[in-house]
């Protein structure tokens, strides 16, 4: 049986959750451990932490955060942002993360994917691909790096396929066109990449309501759906999202199980 995972994504800076997390009843909305525990209780299947810290000297803070999270939260979590080498990944994984996500560093040096897979196993390696529509690429979707600021000329389907072959365990596909719009996932891009890769595909970017989660799984054939603001702002709980998906015929792990 294929069950679709629901994954809240948290942006962290200097070990603190940023970008408008707004649960009224949290003592400290910036505490990644408290938020992670909350999402775990609500029935999240996994968590993704995206470290948006610009300076490299705060790596220790991030590793501390991972360590504390791993002490309290017993569902899988991925950490991405600033991982450029096997040693960077080792520090994160040894601290208790289950997977690392790489994006810009993998585009700049694709060999990194294979190095990580050989060292830690493919299941540890999430390759994050930021795609944007561009009719001049083969598939019509182009890869962007540096948080979506820099075009690469790479075709998104081609790059995802290559990442899969080099040892990615999962592809986390974010539509830069949809991200922040709340208009839903870019379904054609999900289908184009999903058809080309054999590993699980996580849909990201654009979720504004619970129907969008269903569309990602049913129309986009994604294996997991990732969202940030609809959960952080308290509009919808994970439990409500899962109940909605289940009612629409998507197999999910029920909240509270």
């Amino acid at each position: 049986m294929r069950t679709v995972r629901v994954i809240p994504c948290l942006d962290v800076d200097g070990g603190r959750v940023v970008k408008g997390v707004n649960f009224v009843d949290l003592r400290d909305a910036g505490d990644p451990v408290e938020l992670a525990r909350r999402y775990d209780d609500e029935g999240a299947d996994e968590l993704v932490f995206l470290d948006i810290t610009a300076s490299s000297d705060s790596r220790e803070t991030t590793i501390d955060m991972v360590r504390h999270t791993a002490e309290e939260v017993f569902i899988p979590f991925t950490v991405g942002g600033g991982i450029r080498s096997v040693e960077d990944a080792r520090a994160i994984l040894r601290a208790g993360a289950d997977k690392v996500s790489v994006n810009t560093a993998a585009v700049e040096r694709p060999g990194l994917i294979g190095e990580l897979a050989a060292e830690f196993g493919e299941q540890c390696v999430v390759v994050a691909v930021d795609g944007r529509r561009n009719g001049e690429t083969d598939s019509g979707f182009e890869v962007f790096i540096h948080g979506g600021r820099t075009p690469t000329g790479l075709d998104a389907v081609g790059w995802a396929t290559m990442a899969d072959q080099m040892g990615a365990g999962e592809i986390l596909l974010t539509s830069m066109d949809s991200d922040g719009t709340r208009d839903g996932f870019d379904i054609p891009m999900l289908l184009a990449v999903g058809r080309a890769v054999g590993v699980p595909l996580i849909a990201s970017g654009g979720v504004g309501n619970l129907d969008h989660l269903v569309a990602g799984a049913v129309d986009g054939l994604a294996d997991a759906v990732l969202a940030a603001s609809i959960f952080h702002f308290g509009e919808h709980t994970i439990a409500a999202a899962k109940a909605h998906m289940a009612a629409a015929g998507v197999a999910v792990r029920p909240a509270g199980s």
């Binding site: 294929r2 069950t3 999962e170 699980p200 294996d223």
Partner: peptide
């Protein structure tokens, strides 16, 4: 006929 690896929750 399933995706490999299995990376999900199952019963």
């Amino acid at each position: 006929g399933v995706k490999c690896p299995q990376m999900q929750w199952n019963r």
